[in-house]
Computed example of a mutant assay.
Amino acid sequence: MIEKLTYLIKRYAFFLISLEILLIIYLFHPAIAIKTFESASSSFIQMLVVLPPIMILLGLIDVWVARETLMKYMGNDSGIIGIFLAMAIGSIAAGPMYAAFPFTAVLIKKGVKFSNVIIFMNAWCVTKISTLLFEISALGYKFTIARLIIDIPGVIIMGYLVYHLMGKDELTKLYDSYYEI
């Protein structure tokens, strides 16, 4: 029982410390604490609206797309096709960045090359079509195209840089932990 409690405290330490800080702020500045709580509550509700459809979609992808298929097109021997697919999937994605993390877990579970996983995550952040359309309307197409010319190679370089900086043991441990699930 004590081990389980210790595990829960360690796992939720950041949340518990944040809650304690919020309570201390409440003692000295109740208005700031209430505003902070309202903002956090709003973000939490937004997350609850976004995540369930994404989880359903991920469940369907997990069942419908065979591991061998993803490994063929995005695995270790995928080459430029894997890079293109990672960029394309990340670019057509919808939703906030935190929605990419469950999808990333599915990619790792299916054996996608780690550099392609990182490329996917970076593409989700910087080349998402919905964001590009807003950027064109707000900053103009010249700026958007110039940024893309810089960002697309940067996304690919970052994917391979992170892949090579990760030790083989760390990558093996990461992939093995997902295969056990």
Rank of each mutant, 00 (worst) to 15 (best):
M1K: 15
I2D: 15
R11E: 15
R11M: 13
R11L: 14
Y12M: 11
Y12R: 13
S18R: 04
L19T: 08
E20D: 10
I21F: 07
I21G: 03
L23H: 04
I25G: 05
Y26T: 00
L27S: 14
A31C: 03
I32P: 03
A33M: 07
K35V: 03
T36C: 10
T36G: 08
F37R: 01
E38I: 08
A40G: 07
S41Y: 11
S42T: 10
S42G: 07
S42W: 09
S43V: 08
V50D: 09
L51H: 03
I54C: 09
I56E: 10
G59K: 08
L60K: 12
L60C: 12
I61M: 15
W64C: 13
W64M: 14
V65S: 09
V65N: 09
V65W: 12
A66C: 06
A66Q: 14
M71T: 08
Y73M: 04
D77G: 12
D77Q: 14
I80A: 14
I80S: 13
G82T: 02
M87P: 08
M87Q: 10
I89F: 07
G95C: 03
M97S: 10
Y98N: 00
A99Q: 04
F101C: 00
F103R: 01
T104C: 06
T104Q: 07
V106C: 04
V106I: 13
L107V: 03
I108D: 02
K110P: 00
K110G: 01
V112E: 02
F114S: 02
F114Q: 04
V117E: 02
I119E: 00
F120S: 00
F120P: 00
A123F: 00
A123L: 01
W124M: 00
C125H: 11
V126Q: 03
I129C: 05
S130A: 14
S130E: 15
T131E: 15
F134H: 11
E135R: 07
I136A: 05
I136P: 05
S137M: 12
L139N: 14
L139C: 12
G140V: 04
Y141D: 12
Y141H: 13
K142A: 14
K142R: 15
T144I: 04
T144W: 05
I145T: 07
I145D: 06
I145N: 05
A146M: 14
A146Q: 13
R147A: 12
R147H: 10
L148Y: 05
I152E: 00
G154E: 01
V155S: 03
V155N: 01
M158R: 07
Y163R: 10
L165P: 06
L165M: 12
D169G: 10
T172V: 11
T172Y: 15
T172F: 15
K173A: 12
Y175V: 05
Y175P: 01
Y175I: 05
Y178S: 06
Y179V: 12
Y179A: 15
